[in-house]
Design a binder for these strands. Structure first.
Length: 478
RNA sequence: UCCCCUGUAGCUCAAUUGGUAGAGCGAGCGGCUGUUAACCGCUAGGUCGUAGGUUCGAGUCCUACCGGGGGAGCCA
């Protein structure tokens, strides 16, 4: 008999069905009177399936002792209404096949709750817990919802390069990609123990990238935006959705060295349209998750963060507040609160100010737009006031900045002014400038960090726990 | 990179002003039970992150290093 996923069985099964399931044991409770209860989980949903095994089931006495937490099982039998209060169905086993044991003396996962810090050290097993199973399912749903949202509106999915030689926007430290390193010239070439950083030993203080694989210095991408602009200004709305890399040495619950980013880019679109798109986009994802991941979302609301559902419904039911940077700064400086970092016009809004605005002052997502041009990158459209650019950040409660975007500077003359201001070499951006020389159009886009979206959706506090295998400084296990 | 907190049993944490290391959960064994965070009893399990130092005596105080967490910056 073919196995049925537990999610499908709980959704569509009926008492009397003959079914088989396969999964991993969460707990076992015995009655010496001659039967056992087994909680089986197969990852298809939050719920376990309760298995009832009578002692006269073939092989019972031989294997039941090894049916411990973490062991894998295949069970066939009849689905019955459960007299117990905590589940509708239970499976009365006719056959029981122990597939893989899990020594209780050494199996690290217990029935009790573990700290996320501990689970991070056993990332190869944490997906067997309720929390990480739920995160994986929600992450999957978000991923599909992202594609659905853009596909349904005619956006083209563009795969931008992961290896790049364009030093785009100079935003953030980049990881160098090189073949200049040879095993013989590397200290600690393999994963053996030592914590010394590998270092180039080319005989020169600076490696000669002209001799490198690509003939010039190459890096892992920090954004697909510039390449997305190429396709947006020829094929219409596009989006990228892929991994992004930042070699920043930042140690926070909101940063990863490797994360996933969604970046739409829309031609013939100004900042207003960009902000509308961002709002529709976020609401769409929130709505899909609430709709399709009810059990998982309920779990997050009960066990992880009791305000999650309220926050998400609040997002769906209200229009995002749009306020200019200048207004935001006025609000921040008008309060009589003692800021750790007092600011004036021209400064970046600090995290404490952003939190205040979205969590206390407006108590809902806000979009701050028209930032000072001195604190923003070269590619943003310059306003006529000469002081601001058409940039926007979407700030949400508990997470802070979840989206950053802008209308792009499509006027070649202005772009060159900004390249100059930012100390960048126009020759390096020759193809980017070409887009402004031939059929240039106003266009806009933004970037959304997938993991930050997941923080918002799940109520999890640490970004290392919403990606299966987090990469942060000193951490690239698994 | 800077600042703060922290490191004791498999896990989560205690240990009064420096005075011989404890609990709960988990695990093993036994008992009870249509059970479901099960319950009751017993047992095992720790060179207190590492290396120095102060002291008659250090889990406790000092220094360095390593690990974990948080805040800042940067950003998504």
């Amino acid at each position: 008999m073919e196995s049925t996923r537990i999610a499908a069985l709980l959704r569509e099964g009926e008492a009397g069905d003959q079914v088989a399931v396969a999964g991993w044991v969460r707990t076992r409770r015995d009655s010496k009177q001659g039967f056992s209860f087994i909680e089986l989980n197969d990852g298809s949903c939050m719920a376990n399936l309760q298995i009832v095994v009578d002692a006269d089931v073939p092989g019972y006495a031989d294997v039941i002792g090894d049916v411990s937490t973490g062991a894998s099982l295949r069970v066939a039998g009849e689905l019955k209404e459960s007299p117990g209060a905590k589940q509708r169905f239970e499976l009365h086993a006719a056959s029981l096949q122990l597939i893989g044991t899990a020594d209780p003396e050494t199996y690290p996962l217990q029935k009790k709750r573990h700290s996320f810090e501990f689970l991070r050290e056993i990332a190869h097993l944490r997906s067997r817990t309720n929390t990480f199973g739920a995160i994986a399912r929600v992450r999957n749903t978000v991923s599909r919802a992202i594609h659905d949202f853009f596909q349904s509106q005619g956006f083209l999915n563009i795969q931008t390069p992961i290896i790049t030689t364009s030093d785009c926007e100079g935003a953030g430290e980049m990881f160098t990609v090189t073949t200049l390193l040879r095993e013989s010239s590397v200290q600690n070439p393999v994963s053996g123990g030592g914590r010394d950083r590998t270092s180039l030993d080319t005989g020169h203080s600076t490696p000669d990238f002209a001799n490198d694989f690509f003939g010039k210095r190459a890096s892992l991408t920090v954004s697909g935006q510039l390449e997305a602009e190429i396709y947006a200004t020829s094929l219409g709305p596009v989006y990228t959705f892929g991994p992004t890399f930042r070699a920043e040495n930042s140690h926070t619950p909101r940063h990863l060295a490797e994360f996933w980013m969604v970046e739409p880019e829309v031609p013939f679109c100004d900042l207003e349209g960009d902000m509308q798109l961002a709002e529709q986009f976020i609401k769409s994802i929130v709505g899909v998750c609430l709709d399709e991941c009810r059990d998982d979302m309920e779990f997050f609301n009960q066990r992880i963060e009791k305000t999650v559902l309220d926050t998400l419904h609040n997002i769906l039911e209200h229009d995002f507040r749009h306020i200019s940077y200048t207004e935001a700064m006025a609000i921040v400086t008008a309060t009589d609160r003692d800021w750790e970092y007092p600011v004036t016009w021209g400064d970046n809004l600090q995290a404490e100010h952003e939190r205040f605005l979205t969590e206390e002052h407006f108590r809902q997502p806000i979009i701050v737009f028209d930032y000072p041009r001195a604190i923003k990158p070269f590619y943003m459209y310059c306003n006529d006031d000469g002081k601001t650019v058409r940039a926007m950040d979407v700030l949400v409660p508990r997470v802070g900045e979840i989206i950053g975007g802008s209308q792009r500077e499509h006027r070649l003359g202005q772009l060159d002014v900004r390249l100059e201001e930012c100390g960048l070499d126009p020759a390096e951006y020759w193809w980017y400038r070409d887009l402004r020389r031939y059929g240039s159009v106003p266009h806009s886009g933004f970037g959304l960090g997938l993991e930050r979206m997941l923080l918002l959706l799940t109520g999890m506090q640490n970004i290392r726990d919403v990606i299966p295998f987090p990469r942060t400084p000193n951490h690239a296990e698994f």
